[in-house]
Nucleic acid binder design. Structure first.
Length: 480
RNA sequence: GGGCCGUUAGCUCAGUUGGCUAGAGCACUUGACUUUUAAUCAAGGGGUCCCGGGUUCGACCCCCGGACGGCCUACCA
């Protein structure tokens, strides 16, 4: 959007109006202006005859010759102002007519109620705070063009109040999460985003170069390994709420940078995490969205506790038959393919089962479900179940078919952790974060840990269909 | 990465089996109007029909290539 907007008739006209205003002694870009309050506050505290000031953007103008009605709009509300020639005088009235839709103005005057019952500010004095050289989006339909909504989000916010409302809620959601955690004595910490090794998850990282050290560094894909170092250091209830970066596909539920909440609590475990996440989601649903139900009809979501809990094996058997885990690889493969799955010939028994889970089970879990006891090989940073070393003591919270929060009883045995890393790295020791293993060797307390995808949580609670609708500036291809 | 669809005025959208000067509403300009609220009434201006090439007497429309976007799919601890 860098092309010069010259030749635009609207811009030319507005520049002419600006020049005319300047000639009449009106500065075109004002400075600080003291408001009685936002437009919403003005409406809430309305009192006929009260003298007030207000500042906002002009959103509609109804010019009736010797008097003008106009609507101001800010992020909070809309409020009508009334401008009369005999009240303002010839000069100021004439100058007011040089204002355009989208201009930021400051006004001063008394409140009154019009014949039709509309609370209104009668303007005694006005000042231009900022001249808009380009016109706002269409006043009735708003801005629809999806690409422009994302690329020029400010226009989306100006033209579509419901979009602003959604992002107000996102801000409130993040605030309530922080409140919820700090009330429970968790402290918020910041750990490196530039890492020598991108650990804590399996995803392609973004690589960048650090000139001063002459070495490549990675943007983090997860903060996990640093937060666990803090457990070793004696911080026993920590969380980090910030961006992760993953160099992978872009679709309805993936953005390369996304907001992740990670929480670790020493001397707790996966059960502690379950209590915490259920309480936290209910808290934000109630305080921010005012309800525990989202949407209507077949896809309606009910967050009323307790939430369903089912083991990975139970869910797979439920879907594929009670004998699924007794089948040979070939029989399982045949059955899965018959169910419509496309399987990689390299996959072993466990991966075939996992494909069934990811493609056929997870997407079908609409209501909140804690899926527990996952195969150990899939989760190298979690501790084994006490009664079965092939399974790990974890859950994945799935809502509306999306994984919202994985939680573990964290692995704190350095010898076992090193063995699992080796298994995953295929003996390539350079891929292993040795300092992290060293930290474990200094003794990490038993702990529960959890990650929560904030964008996805926001999608679920707001009913948004696309992650781009809950991220202010989502990633798009560059034009050109 | 693959498939399908879309891109027309500043914005929201019509439209043409390939044919005269490409339309509407909002917005803009001019005029009227001192209680309107999507103000109203009258007149007017405004277009690289996404870009490039091709077919044709003639292309916004058909064909080929490209850009960007959307949906699906693939990838994805």
């Amino acid at each position: 959007m860098s092309e010069a907007p010259s030749g635009n008739e609207y811009r030319e006209q507005r520049l002419a109006n600006l020049a005319a205003l300047q000639e009449m002694g009106y500065p075109s870009y004002g400075c600080a202006f003291t408001r009685t309050g936002t437009l919403a506050e003005l409406r809430e505290t309305f009192e006929e005859g009260r003298a007030v000031t207000a500042a906002a953007r002009l959103s509609t103008i109804r010019d009736m010759g010797k008097s003008i009605f106009a609507d101001l709009r800010d992020g909070s509300d809309r409020f009508q102002v009334y401008v009369q020639k005999k009240e303002l005088g010839e000069e100021a009235f004439k100058a007011f007519k040089l204002l355009d839709l989208g201009d930021q103005v400051g006004v001063e005057g008394e409140l009154f109620i019009t014949r039709t019952g509309e609370p209104t500010l009668k303007v005694a004095k006005w000042t231009l705070l900022s001249k808009a050289l380009l016109p706002p989006p269409e006043k009735w339909h708003g801005l629809k063009d999806v690409e422009m909504r994302y690329r020029q989000r400010y226009l989306d916010l100006v033209g579509n109040p419901e979009v602003r409302e959604l992002f107000n809620k996102r801000s409130a959601l993040i605030r309530e999460i922080r409140r919820y955690l700090s009330e429970r004595d968790f402290i918020e910490v910041e750990t490196p985003m530039l890492q020598a090794q991108a650990g804590g998850a399996a995803a392609k990282p973004f690589v960048t170069h650090y000139g001063a050290l002459g070495s490549d560094v990675y943007l983090r894909i997860a903060p996990e390994l640093y937060l666990k170092r803090l457990l070793v250091g004696g911080f026993d209830k920590v969380f980090e709420l910030n961006r992760n970066f993953r160099n992978e596909g872009l679709d309805r539920t993936h953005n390369p940078e996304f907001t992740m909440l990670e929480i670790y609590e020493a001397f707790s475990d996966v059960n502690g995490m379950r209590e915490l996440i259920q309480g936290m989601i209910i808290h934000v649903a109630e305080t921010v969205f005012g309800t525990l139900s989202v949407g209507e009809g077949d896809t309606a979501l009910d967050l009323t506790p307790p939430w369903r809990e089912a083991t990975y094996h139970e869910l797979v058997r439920e879907r594929m038959g009670a004998d699924w885990f007794d089948l040979s690889l070939d029989d399982a493969r045949t059955k899965a393919e018959a169910a419509g799955l496309d399987l990689d010939p390299e996959w072993d028994r466990l991966l075939v089962t996992h494909e069934v889970y990811e493609k056929m089970i997870e997407p079908s879990l609409q209501q909140p479900t804690f899926v527990t006891r996952l195969p150990a090989r899939l989760v190298p940073l979690a501790k084994a179940c006490p009664d079965d070393s092939s399974l790990v003591d974890v859950f994945e919270l799935v809502i509306r078919g999306q994984e919202v929060a994985p939680a573990y009883t964290e692995m704190n045995d350095p010898i076992e952790q090193r063995r699992r890393f080796m298994e995953q790295a295929g003996e390539d020791e350079t891929k292993i974060d040795q300092d992290f293993v060293t930290a474990l060797e200094h003794g990490m307390p038993p702990a529960g840990g959890m990650g929560v995808g904030i964008d996805r949580l926001m999608m679920i609670l707001s009913g948004a269909e696309a992650i781009r609708d809950v991220i202010l500036f989502p990633q798009l291809k560059q034009k050109g």
